[in-house]
Design a protein around this nucleic acid. Structure first.
Lengths: 243, 243
DNA sequence: CCGACGCTTCGGCACCAGCCGAAGCGAGAG
DNA sequence: CTCTCGCTTCGGCTGGTGCCGAAGCGTCGG
């Protein structure tokens, strides 16, 4: 007898559910991770470990708890584990909790975060290829022009190979998979990865189509880039509009 | 070195504040207490201890944490410690957390709770005297008729003594303080306690002015009670309206 | 085929958070 | 004054939890 505790163990205490949920956020490391994820992006496990200042193994444990608790969702992609907020409900919950805790809601910080988020959603690098609205738009345009085929998995067509050759550096001297579908976490649709995606991204940088933004990972599309993408791929103008 | 933990100890980790706040609700016992307090009333420490199923000493520790964390507020009154939610912000926070946890928001339960809350706010016993809208209204009426004086502290006037005598059982055979100002937690205004308040409450029960409600502590005012209060104290009709 | 890399599993460690009962304190009631 | 009663303080116990590093596994790239 003498039940040792009302922890989240056995008895259906009235507040057990609430306590279990709050317990997920009651740890500094987990809270820091969730706060980082509030930018809406999907982070890799390693990124979150560094952000929270813990070992990768520790991060794994925390992420398992948060995912099991329904606060986060994860997707395995290759050797990476991408983690994001499970949904708007999670974000709202964390937001209301964060707003009530001794963290002043400075309008400046919110503005910066919002700006950064917008910049990332617009155009960013995903490893070595393009992502965001621009990345998805480029992928769509390549598909529309017959450079990519999505039947029986993603594949590069002969026309696609010719176009990449015209950019230079094709075929790549690598055994790396030529094309790869990479889920875009802001657009919720796939964009082009793999060797072709990397080559395209490298060319875009070298040709001055895109330049690094002030925000980490984010990129800006230059006037030259907008012109090139419109001419070569017929990417819709509205996607490339300046922000 | 090798900082032992990101608990709520030293380093200003980004998520420390959030974690500290969540930590307050991350314990089953504390969560149960907060949920109990969601009825908007002020509970005594002992009541909360019983509700949560822990010893009084344990309850004290939890309440100290919750008050220190700003989630609850307490007031010492005589030998009692009354605890209530610190404010609307606390209530909203707990509500949003409770709504997101595996506790189904059954409309039936909410309805019952709302009904109970309304009943308690209307009329209830506070120990051995009357509280709630009716309790405060009776106190106001007694003041208006010159039965109570609030100058130099609360006091019973001669007219007040005569009125109580007419009800019977006056003067009381006790050394207990005759009148006592008792803060009403739903009306946020003082109502009459002490020996006079107890006598009045006892008389109201014996004379059939009030009867126990189906909800604990709540009472209903009978038709006879409404008539008596209107005739003897000129209590405003709108306060006594049936619900 | 081999190395690099991201992640997970496992063992071990230390801390502390929650619990209780006993004893102490102060207010109220007789 | 004394008894009762609500609350608090204190000491001691126990189990859970967060942390790490080492080792293992699968993917990717050369």
């Amino acid at each position: 007898m003498t039940a040792p505790g009302n922890r989240a163990t056995a008895e259906p205490t009235p507040g057990a559910g609430l306590a279990a949920l709050a317990g997920l956020l009651a740890d500094g490391t987990r809270a820091t991770m969730c706060l980082a994820l509030m930018d809406g992006r999907a982070w890799t496990a390693t990124e979150l470990a560094r952000a929270a200042g813990v070992a990768a193994s520790t991060a794994t444990e925390h992420l398992n708890l948060l995912v099991a608790g329904g606060l986060l969702a994860d997707v395995r992609q290759g050797r990476h584990r991408y983690v994001r907020l499970a949904g708007p409900a999670s974000a709202e919950l964390i937001e209301s909790l964060a707003a009530a805790s001794p963290g002043a809601p400075e309008p400046v910080r919110s503005l910066r975060a919002a700006t950064r988020r917008r910049a990332l959603a617009y155009a960013r690098t995903c490893y070595d290829h393009l992502a965001g609205a621009v990345g998805v738009a480029v992928t769509d345009a390549m598909t529309a022009r017959g450079y990519l085929s999505w039947e029986r998995g993603l594949a590069l067509t002969e026309a696609g190979e010719r176009w990449l050759s015209s950019l230079g550096g094709w075929p790549p001297a690598t055994r790396r998979q030529v094309v790869r579908s990479c889920m875009d976490w802001t657009e919720r649709r796939p964009h082009l990865g793999g060797a072709a995606g990397a080559l395209l991204c490298r060319h875009a940088i070298e040709a001055g189509w895109i330049v690094p933004s002030t925000h980490p990972r984010a990129v800006r599309v230059t006037d030259a880039g907008r012109a090139a993408l419109r001419e070569q791929l017929a990417v819709p103008v509205h996607v490339l509009a300046t922000r």
